[in-house]
Amino acid sequence: MSEDAPADPVQGAEATNETQPKVEKGEPINVVVKDQHGIELHFKVRKTTKFDKIMKAYCDKKSFQLNQLRFLYDGERLKPDQSPEEVEMEDGDVIDCVMQQIGGH
């Protein structure tokens, strides 16, 4: 299940925003979003792309609402306004996607 399409327009937007810095800064990496059942979805994003875009693309793809899902990178919550660069993510790293947990009885 590989899916590169959602990330493509994202890259374009990012590239136009930062004009003068070198292109290498936003070099693309592969990010894998893995759900509880171990099903993976691959995204190709720039290191400077906010997770917001990945999360939204994932939700669209899987027909979830954003507030139903939690995205974890090595056990830490990812915020939408962070980017792979900030959390020192490398090529091929896995983001865990878990459903929200509610319990009463």
Binding site: Q36, R70, L72, G75, D96, V98, Q101
Partner: peptide, 10 residues
């Protein structure tokens, strides 16, 4: 956190 056992064992 509550996701730890979920990921470890579910």
């Amino acid at each position: 956190n509550s996701f730890f056992l979920e990921k470890l064992y579910n």
